[in-house]
Amino acid sequence: MAEIDVAEVGVRGVNSTLHGLPEGTNETDWVILNPHGYHSIACGLDEHLNVAIKGHVGFYCGGMNQLAEISVEGHAGVGVAENMMSGTVRVSGNASESAGATAHGGLLVINGDASSRCGISMKGVDIVVGGSVGHMSAFMAQSGHLVVCGDAGDALGDSIYEAILFVRGKVASLGADCIEKDMTPEHIAKLTELLAAADIEADPSEFRRYGSARKLYNFDIDNIDAY
């Protein structure tokens, strides 16, 4: 286990160290100290690394992540795990706006609450939020899953495409073209799998599913394989 202190080497020092590791490196376990709310910590990683960040981070932490397992022991600022491709980002506290924005893959776990626009334009990522999400979450969400163990704010899933939303608590309001849908056994199975992956205890039968009414965008069922 190696430690990097942001107070000593700065964000650029942290990221260049992690980026400079050779492919298939054995130095996989890293601890980042004193993040001090700085932006873009552990961005653009593309190796099987375990990176534990001890404290609150600023914007875009874990952005563009591929393969790495990143944990934030604190709160995260705007755009945590934005555009993540694969791997995992876990936040022990709350996340600010636009968590998991445009992310294509991987798993984003927020143990606390996420603010507005959580999962905006998500393109395949799985997001599990232990608490509640703010307004306009899953706005224009295209693919992937958003699991909310608490409540959802106004306009959930506005202009949604084919992402699947599970909410346990109250939904303040649904956005344009977002409707409630049946929970089938296959959805219960997927939700069970996501909660287990997130290490969050919740009863899948308490959740309701929301998704696209498919009236707002030109969806032709014959093209389903393209999604």
């Binding site: 709310g37 404290g55 609150h56 600023g58 600022g77 709350n94």
Partner: peptide, 22 residues
């Protein structure tokens, strides 16, 4: 506007932190 402006305050790391609602 950003937490980094607060991070240096004594006890910030243990403070109650939240985002004001609209």
């Amino acid at each position: 506007t950003e937490y980094r402006a607060i991070a240096h305050l004594p006890g910030a790391d243990k403070s109650v932190i939240w985002e004001p609602e609209p």
